[in-house]
Structure formats: C-alpha cells, structure tokens
C-alpha cells in the first residue's frame, strides 16, 4: 500500500491533527485505567492504534454532515467536539454524561453536533445512515452522511442492503470501513472470502478505494477526495481504511487469537509516532512543542475524570423516562 501523499499540511493543521490523535490515545488509556478500577463498567472498546482514521476522516467534514459510528466511537466523539468530561461522565454512568448516563461507552450521542452514536449492533446503523442521507437529498440540504463500521460488519446482510440502496437511490453517503483485521477474535481471512474489501464496493457500482489507515495524511487526502466526489456527483462513496487495533477487542478479551509479535510489528507503524516524526522532519513541529501538547492533553484528560467523578447519579425515580417522547 505505497502511497504518494501530497496533501498539504501546514503547521496549524499538523498541530491540530496530532493533538486530536494524542487526545484520543490518552483519553482511552485513562478510560482503561478507570475500567480496571471499576469506575467504568460494561463493555469498553478501545480505539488505540486506529486514531488516524477517526481524526483523518472527521477532519474533512463540516458541521452540516451527519456522523454515525460503531460502539468503538470515543475517538470520533472527541474529534466531533463532544467534551471529554461529558464522554467520561457518560462512561461512568453519571447524569452529567452526554446521554445522561443512559447509554454508556457504546452509545455516545450529541444531536447538536449531528453525532448519531454509538451503535452497538454490528451493521445495524448502516440502514439508519441511508435514511439520513435520503432525507438530506429529499430536503435539498447540503450535508453528507458519514457512516463508520468495521470489516466485521461487511459480513452482515445489512451492509449489502445498505450499499445497494445507497447506490440505487444515489444518496450522499460516505461508507468508511475501519478494517482492523479482526471481528472480535475472528481474523479477516476467516470471515471474508475476498479480503480486498474495496472490491465489494465496486460490485455495487460505488466508487471505492483503500487507504493506509495508519497514515493520517493518506486518510485525510482520501477522505477529502471522497467528500468532493460525493458533493459533486451526489452518490455514495466507499472508503476502506486499513488499520490495526493495538489493544484487546474489549476489556474482557484475553487475545488468544493473535500473536504478540504481530501486534508489536504493527506498533512500529503507530500513527501518532509516524505523524509526529513527519512533523518534526518537515519543520512543522519541534519535540518541545509535541511534549507541550502531550502535557495539555494529559491535563484535559485528568479534568475529564474530575468532571466524571464529581458527577451525580440520576434519581432512580426517573428510571422510566426517555421511553416515549411526550
């Protein structure tokens, strides 16, 4: 996957991108810590290793665009601008969370930012994304809809229905596959007969391409081109970001299905390290500036924990709220 990336990155953009990736990394490391301390319960799916995908794709969007994600969505939620404290509080189950604590780690929503989950049935949100894009087309709005999913979702029928309908209806929808090579513990070679996933988009007549998901410049460039194509032609686009998750599937996962050496090999292509090196080598950042960003991120993450810990429990008397809109 040799890429010739020409995407122009100036100091300001470079700083923003690396900061966003660092913030996701540190936020999730802290979340894992709080999980082991049992402040966070349920499922916690970490994005560590895949940060270049969320930051690269999301940086090419506008506030008018709709975003739908999977249950591994802390990264996208942070980039979209949901406050770290509200996300942490949500994971703590506190009513100060972005969904009043009702959703938890897997269900982050913020309608004011057109951020529609946090969806935890694999591929179940792809049909929803169709509806958002269809409504934008019918109402002649400018927004596009971006739908993230893993390669595991591509084995579901809902993926294939959604691809066909998006192409048939010619709606402005960007499908982003975050191919991290494992559907929980099932390697891609055991779940897909054709592992060049972008070929599946082509079979529906949807412009498709694969990109190195560890290289944020490549992701940003590919997404920018994809979004331009969608806005120009009106129809869908399928982008496969080949990436890797450094951590376990969830906190319950003993990782029996892959060799540690494979993980170590991928860590050599850590998206944050690679992009930091790029910035330094091209005089877009100094080591001191990067260290200072890390310090800023550390403070923000610690503040998010303080916010979550200061949060309160919703009174149990309100248990039956949010079932019907009155």
């Amino acid at each position: 996957m040799a890429t010739s990336v020409e995407f122009p990155i100036d100091k300001s953009l470079g700083t923003k991108l690396v900061y966003e990736m660092m913030r996701i990394r540190r936020f999730e490391e802290k979340a894992a810590e709080m999980y082991t301390k049992t402040f966070i319960r349920g499922f916690l799916h970490l994005y560590i290793g895949e940060e270049a995908v969320a930051v690269g794709v999301m940086s090419a969007l506008t506030p008018e665009d709709n975003v739908l994600c999977t249950y591994r969505e802390h990264g996208q939620a942070l980039v979209r601008g949901i406050e770290a404290g509200k996300i942490m509080a949500e994971m703590y189950g506190k009513q100060e969370g972005c969904c009043k604590g009702r959703g938890g780690s897997m269900h982050l929503f913020d309608v004011s930012r057109r951020f529609y989950g946090g969806n935890a049935i694999v591929a179940g949100h792809l049909p929803l994304a169709l509806g958002f894009a269809l409504a934008d087309k019918k109402m002649k709005r400018n927004g596009i809809t971006v739908c993230f999913f893993g390669e595991g979702a591509m084995a579901e029928g809902e993926f294939h229905e959604a691809m066909n309908l998006a192409a048939l209806w010619k709606i402005p929808l960007l499908f982003v596959c975050e191919n991290n090579l494992y559907a929980m513990g099932t390697a891609i070679r055991y779940s897909h007969a054709v592992t060049e996933l972008e070929k599946k988009g082509a079979s529906y007549g949807i412009p498709s391409r694969a990109v190195d998901g560890m290289d944020i410049r490549a992701v940003l460039q590919a997404t920018t081109e994809a979004v331009e194509t969608i806005r120009r032609e009106g129809g869908p686009y399928f982008l496969v970001c080949n990436t890797y998750r450094f951590r376990a599937h969830s906190m319950f996962d003993a990782e029996l299905y892959r060799d540690k050496s494979e993980v170590e090999e991928w860590k050599k292509r850590d998206p944050i390290v690679m992009f930091s090196d790029y910035l330094v080598n091209n005089n877009l950042a100094t080591h001191e500036e990067l260290a200072s960003l890390e310090k800023k991120v550390e403070e923000e993450v610690n503040e998010s924990v303080r916010y979550a810990e200061a949060g309160t429990w919703e009174p149990v008397e309100q248990l039956e709220e949010f079932v019907y809109q009155t």
């Binding site: 049909p127 929803l128 958002f132 269809l134």
Partner: peptide, 13 residues
Amino acid sequence: AGFVGAGIGAAIA
C-alpha cells in the same frame, strides 16, 4: 432491514 432502517433514519432527520 435496509428500507425500514432508512425510514427510521429519515424520520430522525
């Protein structure tokens, strides 16, 4: 699943 989901999404939107 595809078109019922699309209806749900369009209703939200």
